[in-house]
Design a protein around this nucleic acid. Structure first.
Lengths: 229, 229
DNA sequence: TGCTGCACGATCATATACGATTTCGAATAC
DNA sequence: GTATTCGAAATCGTATATGATCGTGCAGCA
């Protein structure tokens, strides 16, 4: 046999990934009509697995579905991005605080290493790579969150953002320097055993600041409409 | 024709509701094996819609699914309840703060009315009714949240809790009095235009306190394991 | 007795087929 | 010229059928 790489993958899951990838690639832009039959033909399978895949995507909010009409890629405007970012700032801030006391010296060292990598890449700045490292850094901090439910929510929100934009720092490259400084600051708070409230606030503000930078850069005219904390 | 009541409902949705109801009713207890064929037979439909329904429920976390094996009602132990409550305390706290500035005098009046209803029912205490009113009260406060994404998350978490326990106050009836007092306190904070941080903290603590009461009542021996803020 | 392997039953996964609903355009009436 | 109705094509919703996979119990052997 030649189970090239997707042998252990059910067709529904194949379809799921296939569609998701196209959406992430902007190949299927928002509003794009997802026709069961066509996709099934394209993937050389019947419509049943495709249906299931689309329902999953619907549950994640990536596509909207209307009965007897069909599915289309969800409309994602800037406001959704902003809202998701704010939600993430809340969730991630709390998750980071809930993980702080459980981080070992090694964990902190590792996070710092990632942050130093980010500093290095600042010279020949690559937004995509920087965004990826950024995610890695924060994951290192909140992954040990004492509350798995919070962790799930954080992951879900990260995934959601990943679909809306594959690189935040493409939009606000200037924010990168400030960002790594704040990272170090958070690390110090964790190391010195600062009150959890402080850590939460710092982590939350850190992300809010990225959002603010984005807003000022992309929509300088609009008011944020989102109260700060 | 006799479209008794479910004419406009697709079979997948019928199945979805049917199963969900059984789970809520404890008729399908955690660990219960959901067999596609049996359910399909019971509902007099083919397995296809049932499959879809189960996948939806899976996405919501109500059932777990294993390939080529089947679905079963998710195990929900106390810890999950606790984690969910804590997540809700965070989300709801923030949502309440994000809604505070948008509440009109009427909104506050309405919320206070609900709270007074809760006070009245304290005499002949009915946990179910009290819990329902409690939800109504909080919904009145956070429903105008400026961030719809946060609102979605709050709703989802409420729904999740609804499945785990249909009445929180069955477990800690003594908490009710304290609860309505804190409600009034939150209302005053909103009316007087307290800083959003204060409102958030109060709302968060309010729910945390319910969780603590539950813990002390049900698991006095266990440490919370969840740091307070 | 205890373990290995096989075969059977239960259940899931997918394909194909058909009926149902919606959408869109063309023909007709005004 | 515009509005309305009718009909066909596209697409979805579900049923039925068949192959694939997993769990389990029994038989055979050490």
């Amino acid at each position: 046999m030649s189970p090239t790489e997707a042998d252990t993958l059910s067709k529904s899951q194949q379809a799921y990934r296939w569609i998701k990838e196209r959406i992430a690639n902007q190949e299927f832009t928002p509003g794009y009509r997802l026709v069961l039959g066509s996709i099934a033909g394209e993937l050389d399978m019947s419509v049943v697995p495709v249906r299931e895949a689309i329902r999953q995507l619907e549950a994640e909010g990536l596509v909207t579905f209307e009965r007897n009409v069909g599915a289309r890629v969800s409309m994602v405007d800037d406001s959704q991005y902003r809202y998701s970012m704010q939600a993430l700032s809340i969730l991630e801030g709390t998750a980071t605080a809930l993980a702080a006391r459980r981080l070992t010296a090694d964990d902190v060292r590792n996070a710092r290493r990632i942050n130093e990598l980010m500093i290095e890449t600042l010279e020949h700045f690559d937004p995509r790579a920087f965004t990826a490292l950024n995610q890695e850094f924060h994951a290192a901090l909140f992954e040990k969150c004492a509350n798995p439910r919070m962790l799930d929510l954080v992951h879900a929100e990260w995934a959601r953002l990943g679909h809306l934009r594959d690189s935040t720092f493409s939009f606000v490259p200037g924010r990168a320097q400030e960002s790594v400084r704040e990272h170090e600051n958070i690390l110090v708070l964790i190391e010195t055993g600062a009150p959890l409230g402080e850590i939460e606030k710092a982590a939350r503000r850190h992300r809010s600041a990225t959002l603010d930078a984005y807003m000022i850069h992309e929509h300088p005219d609009e008011a944020l409409g989102l109260p700060a904390f």
